[in-house]
Write a protein that binds this DNA or RNA. Structure first.
Lengths: 171, 171
DNA sequence: ACGGTAGTGTCTAATTATTGGACACAAGGG
DNA sequence: CCCTTGTGTCCAATAATTAGACACTACCGT
């Protein structure tokens, strides 16, 4: 099984070409966009496995604000598609904010080809991990109990289940 | 209910004092450690709401590797306690790796006092968010179906439930 | 010391959810 | 064209969840 489609969004044609050549061997299909305007429509149509999004589109504006906006917009609409950000302006605060806003990873230009491929594949792998409902539930139950300092009544209320059910789940 | 205990781990006494003064007004209790050796025992005893962990402990070693090691060790043992990393060596790659390894946030020295308080409180708030089992489940179900391209049989298998049960949940 | 509040552990009986099994049917691939 | 795979839909048996009740403990304020 080959890693699926990658959607690459960058305002520079040169970058798009370079990325395309870099990723060609590793992915089934590479779709490129020079502007995020059509991103949502394109995602709907292409169903990419991962999105590589540049952070700066307005010339002279390098705060990354625009990329961040698109990150949140895309991530809200397609929470299951991992988004990897790429930027020329390596900034720790920006990177942290991006990851906290749902980005799967954050790479800086100039990039290392091998690393970029690895990062994108890793993002896909991570995003497609699905655990059993049972495991998800037991972890969540533990977290809720933790937050309530072991108070089962409040934890049950928080979880939206009855006290007895929580009692049974715990044992 | 006021923001609980903060555990601060940094090899510099001067830093610990400065952080202590900074956080004193905003948290109930500040516990400090000059070395992560006793971190696990201290956490067990103090039950901190959040941990502020410095990344560099060996003089001359500033790769952050040691902090990263402790981050993963602590996070594995106490996955519900948010860990905020702090370092003097602002490095995008390091920050990204830290967040992907479970850190709640990443701040650089010198820090802004207001920002540090905000970051720690935010980490606590985020960590204590607990959603209902029903909501958690429906989101997970959606994710699983997405991964299986809508194939209910495979999705049900992946989730560890029967096909009919998944069928009922979806409607 | 006292009553009030809140939580636990346990039970019952009614209600729901989940399950394996079955069946007809549609789509797709050697 | 058969064979596989998955859907949509039933059924009846089993398991989980629920509200409600009860005695008991722990703590809190007066």
């Amino acid at each position: 099984m080959k890693y699926g489609t990658v959607l690459v969004i960058d305002d520079s044609e040169a970058i798009l070409t370079a990325v395309k050549i870099c990723l060609e061997g590793a992915f089934e299909r590479i779709v490129t966009l020079t502007s995020p305007d059509k991103a949502l429509a394109s995602i709907e149509q292409e169903h990419p496995s991962v999105i590589l999004l540049d952070m700066n589109f307005s010339l002279g504006v390098n705060s990354g604000g625009e990329g961040m906006m698109w990150l949140t917009a895309i991530h809200r609409r397609f929470p299951d598609i991992p988004i990897v950000l790429i930027t020329a302006y390596a900034d720790v605060k920006l990177a942290v904010r991006a990851l906290k806003n749902g980005a799967a990873d954050f790479v800086t230009k100039p990039w290392d080809n091998e690393e970029l491929i690895r990062v994108l594949k890793d993002a896909i792998d991570k995003a497609s991990e699905v655990v059993s409902l049972e495991q998800l539930e037991s972890e969540h139950v533990r977290k809720a109990l933790n937050k309530c300092d072991g108070n089962m009544k409040r934890a049950a209320d928080l979880l939206g289940i009855s006290r007895q059910t929580l009692y049974n789940k715990v044992k």
